[in-house]
Write a protein that binds this DNA or RNA. Sequence first.
DNA 1: ACGGCTAGTGAACAGTGTTCACCAGCTTAA
DNA 2: TTAAGCTGGTGAACACTGTTCACTAGCCGT
Lengths: 225, 225
Amino acid sequence: MGIKERQERDREAVRRAILDAARDLFTTEGYRNVSIRKIAERIEYSPAAIYSYFPSKDDIFFALAEEGFRLLGDPATCTQTAGPLERIRAIFWRLYRFSREHPQYFALMFVDRSVPRIGREYERFAFVLETKRHLVAEIERGIEAGVFPATLNPAVAVRLLTVGLLGVAVLSLSERLAPGEDPECLASDVIATTLAGLQTGVALKSTGVAVDCGAKEPIAGERAS
Amino acid sequence: MGIKERQERDREAVRRAILDAARDLFTTEGYRNVSIRKIAERIEYSPAAIYSYFPSKDDIFFALAEEGFRLLGDPATCTQTAGPLERIRAIFWRLYRFSREHPQYFALMFVDRSVPRIGREYERFAFVLETKRHLVAEIERGIEAGVFPATLNPAVAVRLLTVGLLGVAVLSLSERLAPGEDPECLASDVIATTLAGLQTGVALKSTGVAVDCGAKEPIAGERAS
DNA sequence: ACGGCTAGTGAACAGTGTTCACCAGCTTAA
DNA sequence: TTAAGCTGGTGAACACTGTTCACTAGCCGT
């Protein structure tokens, strides 16, 4: 009896249609300006129908964000080339590549300012922390290999690299670069400069390391209504 | 006849009351969750009254953002101490200090994700570019003094430092740091590491320099309705 | 052929930003 | 002192928003 299966497939198809429509609309109109009614109209369903697939508009975004983070994090584990420095370079280069290959997901995850905060969905996005721990371990391997000074705080290093790359990607995607400027060069420069700075062994003051992060309490910004 | 003057004062007082109420509400509830009605109720006026002071809810934010940017940028010009490296350190340290001394303005300007984009109000926020040009000039002075290699792109340097500091401030203000972690140390580390990296003269690929920035066209995110 | 389940609906609720005809009260001129 | 005019402020409405809920049409297993 393939009926249950077909029903599930149908349901999954509608769910996908909602997500695809939402992704397109969110990235062209901005999350804030997209209403449930617009999504419903796009997939030719009534607005209320969507609520039998997602409990809220925010949850549609969370589903898309989860897809995005899995897309970004998954293949990061299988980068097993060359020395530690090259591997680190490659890993963070991925962050930039992702912004170019999946601009819609990236825009939703990092540049749209009208989107709800994922900090609330702690369990759901716990796997992102797993990816981060992996990056920290990579830096630690670099320290053991003598590439970085032993005094270097791996978590701080990861943060520096991440924030820099994120900045370039956002700048690039939001068309804030000058006409002649090449985002690939800028991304490469950010990695190079930051890595060079980390290698100099400049005195770092930070003591308490934060591998885990993610705000449990919301601040200025969206609050669950 | 001080009547006109008193009328103007009254009007200015109401305007200030609106801005103060809005600033408080925006930073505690989040821009998105604050309605004109809530602001009106706070200042004991009708919702419609507000529209004779500001053309839209977004414009209330723009007014606050402008105040914030002026607060942040103004005293940056009178930092005339010590050598170029110390001056640069001091200038960017200001960015961090600002986030602690004016957390409400900072949250509105950089961490609240539900706020409208200022890219649209190009003329109004042109003075921010002026401040940025000042930073670039400071880096150039550092190059002339031999602190940085001649190959260094000043605009890229400014961007690296800015994005790093911004990251720390946001992290700190949104309570994303681990319990033991000191934001001041982290901020200091970011400046130190980035400056060290810039001084090494690591190869930079970027060619087209962008002193001016600010998107004229909106992307994913709020669009003028 | 019939009961039950369920995906989907239309209508409504409470809230949003914004507009507009209107009015009270002060200011100014006669 | 009175009349006209202006202007800051109002209440009510418009066109939206996210979300809920009683209900139904149609397919399922019996």
